[in-house]
Design a protein around this nucleic acid. Structure first.
Length: 487
RNA sequence: GGCCCCAUCGUCCAGCCUGGCCCAGGACACAGGAUUUUCGAUCCUGGAACGAGGGUUCGAAUCCCUCUGGGGUCACCA
């Protein structure tokens, strides 16, 4: 059995895309499950749009989610170079082979003529297709054009009749009439190959056994099949994964969905969760579980369980899943993640955070500064910086005038406590509530506002322990003062 | 528009290949309840789908056909 070799082949033209991680995940999982190789190939044949920054970001993001490749531009390998812009000679030589075998031809048509041609075809409601003007140029004409230095492209000569078919591993037989296929440009006038040529040549030379890519490529696969045939090469297995969708079912896009992996990182999503979420798109674990690690997915993976319907990318479920992952973290790991993501660049002491983090663990869904602050900013400011509406201090169904005296008594009881621990505090609160005829919950809320300035907080008593007695009492004092205004 | 792909709860999936165990199961979200010092987490309960029409069959979510719907693609972009 041949060694499984798969590749993910992003084009470095912008932010790293979730779709790349999605396809990469299945490449990776399949390769690992079959003891194969996972390769990263950079398809930078579009000279105007490709940038080194984008390539860098793609590699960093793929590593961030945890998909490490065995061969690639940075780590090398026996089938390099892995950057298409460095393989120009290879494509030129292969184009030459095709030209000599008359499987391809030079086309001297100008872009202007082609645009005009398509406009005409559209007007006449004909399918837009190259009209074949240069298909049968005489050798002399070609020589002339060449010596005049006219720019040209090389097109694949598609047989005018017949059918092309291929078997997709998860979809079955796909067949199409060659009339439907255009004489695809293989080599652009700038000497660079198009996706189609480079892709086929590289997949063959790199001995790729399974071409895993998105559904949007199905319609160009017949061209690739014809190319393999023209070269006389063995065909890889084709597997077209379903396309990730927006809510309106269209192909996932920037305008309707966060699509950049950088965004997910910034938002504080855990890469494990993102990958797990992606693993549930189009694939399902054999026992139905939805939370699984990469290794578990590898152990259970099979193409039989890959579906063909395009899943809507619904971030709501990702949020839930991320929350599940967050809650599984140990206090130490939780603290580390917070420090390196939500709190990156802030001066927060690790020891103190180690005590706070567990209190907010089940209250945040991701490691964003927003969520962290919403939950715990009161820990990081002084008593005098605490701002809130004094009205909040008064519980429902109590006389506003009673609030200040109640807080005053509470402060005294707190101050008299032998130990600044949760149990004595709770006892004191309940006892006082009883004495003044308040519901315990009301007194809790009153103190909560006094100490945190918020209605929704982490557990109050634990928070006060962390704040310390002095700080807590100071906040009580300020609250008493504010409560005077309620009279 | 041509061609191609797809079609189960609002969403993600299971079931379909090898018809009956499915008046369709799980998860997210939503609603209600329990618990609780708030929020959250947790637990319980609930509503919620086989696109339509024809076949085949004793029997169809499952097989076949048509229609409808959605999507992709038709570049010297990938």
């Amino acid at each position: 059995m041949k060694t499984v070799r798969v590749r993910v082949a992003p084009s470095p033209t912008g932010d790293p895309h979730v779709g790349t991680a999605y396809i990469g995940l299945f490449d990776y999982v399949f390769a690992r499950s079959r003891n194969g190789k996972f390769i990263l190939r950079i398809e930078d044949t579009d000279r105007t749009r490709s940038t080194p920054e984008s390539e860098q970001a793609i590699m960093e993001s793929l590593r961030w989610v945890g998909l490490q490749w065995d061969e690639g531009p940075d780590v090398g390998g026996d089938y390099g170079p892995y950057r298409q812009s460095e393989r120009s000679e290879i494509y030129r030589a292969h184009t030459q082979m095709l030209l000599e075998a008359d499987k391809a031809y030079r086309c001297f048509c100008t872009p202007e003529r082609l645009t005009e041609m398509r406009d005409r075809q559209r007007k006449e409601k004909l399918p837009p297709k190259y009209d074949g003007r240069c298909r049968e140029l005489k050798p002399e004409e070609i020589e002339n054009n060449l010596s005049e230095g006219k720019p040209f492209v090389v097109r694949l000569r598609i047989p005018p009749h017949g059918y092309v078919s291929f078997t997709d591993k998860i979809r079955g037989l796909v067949q199409i009439a060659t009339e439907q296929i255009d004489d695809q440009v293989l080599l652009k006038s700038d000497g660079f190959p198009t996706y189609h040529l480079a892709n086929v040549v590289d997949d063959h030379l790199m001995e790729i056994t399974h071409v895993i890519r998105a559904e949007e490529w199905i319609s160009s696969t017949p061209k690739h099949v014809l190319l393999y045939e023209a070269f006389g090469w063995e065909m890889p297995q084709f597997i077209h994964m379903p396309l990730l969708r927006n809510t309106d079912k269209s192909k996932i896009s920037k305008r309707k969905n966060p699509v950049s992996l950088l965004w997910y990182k910034d938002q504080g999503y855990m890469p494990e969760a993102l990958l797990n979420f992606l693993g549930n798109m189009g694939w399902s674990f054999s026992d139905g579980r939805e939370i699984f690690s990469l290794d578990e997915m590898i152990a259970d993976f099979s193409w039989d369980r890959v579906g063909t319907t395009g899943p809507v990318f619904d971030i709501t479920k990702l949020d839930w899943m991320n929350g599940m992952y967050v809650r599984q973290l140990s206090p130490e790991k939780l603290t580390s993640r917070l420090l390196e993501t939500a709190l990156a660049g802030r001066d927060v002491g690790r020891e103190r955070l180690l005590r706070i983090a567990p209190l907010i663990q089940e209250r945040i869904t991701k490691f964003s500064a927003e969520e962290f602050d919403a939950m715990s900013d009161f820990f990081f400011i002084g008593a005098d910086q605490l701002e809130y509406d004094p009205g909040l201090l008064a519980p429902k169904k109590t006389e506003p005038a009673d609030v200040a005296p109640a807080l005053q008594k509470m402060r005294e009881r707190f101050d008299a406590l032998d130990a600044w621990e949760t149990q004595p505090m709770e006892d004191a609160i309940r006892a006082l509530a009883d004495e003044i005829g308040w519901k315990a919950g009301s007194l809790f809320m009153c103190v909560r506002i006094a100490v945190t300035g918020r209605k929704a907080t982490p557990p109050l008593l634990e928070s006060m322990v962390i704040l310390g007695k002095d700080e807590s009492l100071k906040r009580m004092d300020n609250a008493i003062e504010k409560a005077q205004a309620l009279l």
